[in-house]
Amino acid sequence: MSGFAIAVISFKRGRAYLLNHLVNNVGSFVFGYIYVSIWRSALGESQESSVMVTYLMVNQSILWVTMFLSKGAFIPQKIREGTITFDLLRPYNLLYGSLFEVIGQGMYNLLFRTLPIFALGLMFLGVRLPEPSKVLPFCIVLFNGFLISFFLNYFVGLWSVKFLGASGAQGLYYMLVNLFGGSFLPASYYPGFLKRLMPLLPFAGMNYYPASVYLGSIGLGIALAHQVFWICVLFITAVLLTRRLLRSIQIHGG
């Protein structure tokens, strides 16, 4: 199956830089620690504080399979190097190939970034393990969060094809995910109407819902409803945009 092979080779590529990534993990951990310190200074030594610590560190760990996936699903890089041509010469669709390439990277990040950072959190910050009944739901919701992130990255990638300059779209992506993803702030802390808006946006599916399901503060049903809705919307948009883009490449040149 081509998809699987693409994922495998993408996974292997990550491993070529394992050492660098492990150093980077410590950096991620420190970021988590900063946020934990901020929250702790506000909440003191309370139950809520300990829950927040877990919330924050779970998010820090899963950022590597959600927010920090491939920039633009690797497409801007391929355009810079010219190798995008080959992706157009393959007997499969660009969306399909990109998806599996990102899945490969996601698997790598899961094993070599998410897990180590999470482990550091367990060891040094008192992160709580999930209740056994929450493990499977968390995995499902995390995977969905990954998919949402993939589509958003893919759109950034398509944008760079059209406009030959991804940095704007990439920056916008970071901003939106940062602001509405919920990795620092759960929905209840958002003021006014944002409190209700934030959980409805796709970004929340990347951090807020997975971490909340982990903690048990949001049920699987609600999380799934949100994520499946957005995955469908994003998927259909991705298919349509891909078709349009490929057609325009065909007309205007690779």
Binding site: M1, S2, F4, A5, I6, V8, I9, K12, R13, A16, Y17, R90, P91, Y92
Partner: peptide, 16 residues
């Protein structure tokens, strides 16, 4: 694939 051995790309192409 730039960072990987040639044979890895060949294996990929075999599947594709």
């Amino acid at each position: 694939w730039w960072d990987l051995p040639v044979k890895d790309t060949y294996a990929l192409l075999k599947e594709i």
